[in-house]
Nucleic acid binder design. Structure first.
Length: 221
DNA sequence: GACCAGGCACATC
DNA sequence: GATGTGCATGGT
C-alpha cells in the first residue's frame, strides 16, 4: 500500500532523474560490445577507475583473448599480467576465473543461456561466486543481461546522503529497495539512472571538497 | 606525495 | 554483528 513516504520518495527520485537526464543527456551504457565483455568489465572495475579497466580490456582484445573459452584456458599469471592496469590483478584474475568456471559449468560459457533464467535465480547464483558481490551481480544483470536490477554503488550512497535522502548506514539491499519500490521496473530507466549517477559522481559529487554547482541542487524546490 | 577510483572477502575483536 | 584490512594500478 502506498504511504505518504512512498509518494514523496517517488517524486524526489523521479525529479532527480529528470534533472540529471536533462543536464547530462543519455549515457548509452554499458561501455562494452558484448554481454561477456560487460561481465568482465563489471569485475575489473571493482573499486577502480574505468580508464584503467579499458586498458586491461584492450590488452585482452589485442591478444584476441576476450572470450570465455580463451580466458578459461589461461594460467593465473598470464591472465593477471594482461589485466594488470586494472589493479588488484591477482585478486581479479582469481575472481574472473571463478566467474568463468561458473559460466562454463552452468551455462556452457554462454551469457545468452544465462540470460534465459529469471532475474532472482541468476542473481542468487552470481552472488555465490566468490568475488561477485551485490554491485557486480546487479551490473551484470542490468547491463549484460538486460534485467531490471538497480545498481547501487559508492556514488549512489554519497549523492543520496549529501541530499539527505538516505542514512549513512543503510544496507545495499535497503537502498536498492528504495529505487525498486519508488520507480517503475523499467530496464531502460535503471540503465540510464545508474549511468547518470556515475556521471554526476565523477564530475561533481567528490568526496572532498563537497560538490560545486551540483546539477541536482534545489531539486526539492 | 596524498588522494581517489563504478568492491569484495576475510580476519579479528 | 560490527569494524578493520589487504588488494594495486594510473590519473589528478
Amino acid at each position: 500500500m502506498a504511504t505518504h513516504n512512498h509518494t514523496h520518495k517517488t517524486v524526489v527520485l523521479t525529479e532527480i532523474y529528470h534533472k540529471l537526464y536533462s543536464h547530462f543527456g543519455p549515457q548509452h551504457w554499458w561501455p562494452g560490445d558484448t554481454a561477456f565483455e560487460i561481465a568482465v568489465g563489471a569485475i575489473l572495475t571493482q573499486n577502480t577507475n574505468w580508464t584503467n579497466v579499458e586498458k586491461a580490456i584492450l590488452n585482452l582484445k589485442k591478444k584476441k583473448s576476450l572470450s570465455a573459452k580463451k580466458m578459461n584456458g589461461m594460467s593465473h599469471s598470464t591472465l593477471a599480467s594482461l589485466i594488470k592496469p586494472a589493479g588488484y590483478f591477482n585478486v581479479k584474475a582469481k575472481r574472473l576465473n571463478n566467474f568463468l568456471t561458473f559460466l562454463s559449468n552452468s551455462y556452457s560459457g554462454s551469457m545468452k543461456k544465462m540470460g534465459e533464467k529469471d532475474l532472482p535465480l541468476i542473481r542468487e547464483e552470481l552472488l555465490k561466486v566468490n568475488g561477485i558481490g551485490p554491485e557486480t551481480a546487479d551490473s551484470i544483470l542490468l547491463y549484460a543481461l538486460n534485467k531490471p536490477s538497480f545498481v547501487i554503488d559508492a556514488y549512489t550512497r554519497r549523492i543520496l546522503q549529501r541530499h539527505n535522502i538516505a542514512d549513512a548506514d543503510v544496507s545495499y539491499h535497503e537502498l536498492q529497495a528504495v529505487f525498486h519500490e519508488n520507480l517503475p521496473r523499467d530496464i531502460k530507466l535503471y540503465n540510464e539512472y545508474h549511468a547518470l549517477i556515475v556521471m554526476l559522481g565523477k564530475n561533481y559529487c567528490k568526496p572532498k571538497p563537497k560538490c560545486k554547482e551540483c546539477p541536482i541542487e534545489g531539486y526539492l524546490a
